[in-house]
């Protein structure tokens, strides 16, 4: 089977005030249709850069990206992006934000009524029908991220690109959104590339975890196949030795092989990325609910729904 998306020898050099800076070097990756890929690595290693090259927002200096046999040169809705900080237009309601995308992508292909149904369908997928006429400043961070996902899904992308989609959310909200995402994925079987700094999230959601070495000149260090049958359940997996084995492998890559000797971070933090110290903090937080120690947080499905309304 031919891969849907292929990155070949991708490298990029930024020209900065202090001369050129090589961010990526020889990144090779083949992704099949319906695969869920996580990109993980220390902050500032170049994850967002890889994603932005696939999105077409950045141009690779060497190598290239081929989607469905065609080279990627510019951004487009067939490679929808979910940005870390939602990027909703603050003056539009949730519905109107999705509408902007749908009108753009399906102009002339869907009737008005079909578009409306399609917008509502996508908002329903992310459980946002109850607040679809609210504006971003009237809904919580988790809800904004849900709308961002709905907007991306509504474009019917060939590849869904997500840059730390849940990075700014609290652990509980994040868990709800991960579950929602797994449900949606079961239904739509999208091809996904997701950047994360959360080891549990990566293992829980992915088919493969792509681990990146530290920059400069970052590249792919290891790729880990996650052979856990779906649907996956976070509570059952918490006791599963395979799950813990995968977690351990990612952790050992990040904290032994690619240990950051110097904890200080690059001076420039483009696009308001989370800082390195947050990585560690966030990991502790998620571990609290994902590992056996976090069983006290266990909740029934009914409570789940209630929490979703409250926290998401």
């Amino acid at each position: 089977m031919n891969p849907l998306l292929e990155l070949t020898q991708v490298g990029i050099e930024f020209s900065t005030a202090k001369g050129s800076f090589r961010a990526l070097q020889s990144v090779d990756l083949k992704i099949n249709k319906g695969e869920y890929i996580s990109l993980i690595g220390h902050s500032g290693c170049g994850k967002s850069t890889v994603l932005n090259i696939v999105a077409g927002l950045l141009q690779a200096t060497e190598g290239g990206v081929v989607l469905n046999g065609k080279e990627v040169n510019e951004p487009g809705p067939e490679r929808a992006v979910v940005f870390q900080n939602h990027s909703l237009l603050p003056w539009l309601s949730a519905y109107e934000n999705v509408e902007l995308a749908v009108k753009q992508v399906f102009r002339g292909k869907k009737s008005k009524a079909e578009m409306k149904a399609w917008i509502e369908h996508n908002l329903e997928l992310v459980h946002m029908t109850h607040a679809m006429h609210k504006r971003p400043d009237e809904i919580s961070g988790g809800m904004k991220q849900r709308v961002g996902i709905a907007r991306a899904l509504a474009m019917e992308p060939q590849v869904l690109l997500m840059d730390e989609p849940f990075g700014a959310l609290d652990a509980l909200t994040r868990a709800h959104l991960q579950d929602s995402l797994m449900d949606i994925q079961k239904e739509l079987n999208n091809t996904v590339i997701m950047i994360t700094h959360d080891v549990d999230e990566a293992v829980l959601l992915s088919d493969r975890i792509v681990m990146m070495t530290n920059g400069p000149a970052a590249t792919i260090g290891e790729i880990l196949h996650i052979d856990l049958e779906r649907p996956r359940n976070r509570l059952q997996l918490a006791d599963d030795p395979r799950y813990n084995h995968y977690r351990h492998q990612v952790l050992s890559f990040l904290y032994e092989k690619q240990r950051k000797t110097d904890d200080s971070l690059p001076a420039t933090q483009p696009h308001g990325q989370v800082s390195g110290s947050q990585i560690i903090k966030e990991n502790h937080e998620t571990r609290a609910i994902n590992t056996p120690a976090g069983h006290s947080h266990a909740h029934t499905p009914d409570q789940d729904k209630a929490n979703q309304l409250k926290t998401a």
Partner: peptide, 14 residues
């Protein structure tokens, strides 16, 4: 205008 909103516009090919 934030780069994020410009990116949205680019991805949508407005």
């Amino acid at each position: 205008i934030s780069q994020d909103l410009k990116n949205v516009s680019q991805v949508l090919r407005l």
